[in-house]
């Protein structure tokens, strides 16, 4: 039926150079995102230590951690897309024959790429305003906001790229649309519900 698969389910790239480069970029994004989450764990623990054990002020930690987790989410988007980790409901694709399913796949992913690309575009715009006007966060730390905002165009931009690569992989026959076997309703015992 559907869902995130719990096993490692990354897209196949074959020897297609475009797919391989995109896959490498997305994987790098995954490492960065994981690193940011781990950094957030350590900074939060450090904050509790500073406040509870040393009884000192905590000035920058809360904000740093929030921005790290947001950036990890946005930068992590292309990686999770590559792992087919964004949960979906494929009721309609399952009901379709292979041909129409492939058409639906291209339509669905093109719409996805369009919206992600749009977010990257307006996100870049937003980032630029924050950069040019020198916006800061309204705290004692006063972090320059263009730094966290940079994750918006980068994350959505690379997410768009990965989606385009996913379309390409299906059109080139490296992958099946929606990762479904030809006749999913009669499949059994393969993890393909």
């Amino acid at each position: 039926m559907t869902g995130t698969r719990m096993n490692d389910n990354k897209a196949l790239t074959g020897s297609d150079p475009f797919l391989r480069v995109t896959a490498a970029i997305s994987t790098l994004c995954g490492w960065i995102a994981a690193g940011m989450v781990v950094a957030a764990v350590f900074i939060t623990c450090q904050m509790i230590f500073v406040r509870f054990v040393l009884n000192h002020s905590t000035i920058w930690q809360t904000e740093a951690v929030v921005y790290l987790v947001i950036a990890a989410t946005l930068i992590g988007l292309p990686y999770v897309q590559r792992l087919k980790g964004h949960v979906n409901v494929d009721l309609i694709p399952i009901a379709l024959q292979f041909g129409p399913r492939k058409v639906l796949y291209v339509v669905v992913l093109s719409a996805s790429a369009l919206v992600m690309g749009m977010l990257a575009f307006y996100g870049y715009d937003f980032w630029q305003v924050a950069y040019q006007r020198g916006w800061k966060s309204d705290t004692v730390w006063g972090v320059r906001l263009w730094i966290p905002y940079l994750a918006i165009p980068v994350g959505f931009g690379l997410m768009t790229l990965q989606i385009v690569a996913d379309i390409w992989a299906v059109l080139k026959g490296h992958e099946r649309p929606f990762g479904l076997v030809r006749d999913p309703l009669n499949a059994s015992g393969t993890g393909e519900l």
Binding site: A40, T44, T73, Y122, D125, Y149, I152
Partner: peptide, 26 residues
């Protein structure tokens, strides 16, 4: 409203309480 979407999206995540989600998942 479209030009606002990235900002709204960012702001929805801008909440310290949400930090607990990746932590509890780890």
């Amino acid at each position: 409203s479209l030009t606002l979407m990235p900002e709204i999206l960012f702001a929805k995540l801008d909440d310290f309480a949400l930090l607990a989600i990746p932590m509890f998942i780890i």
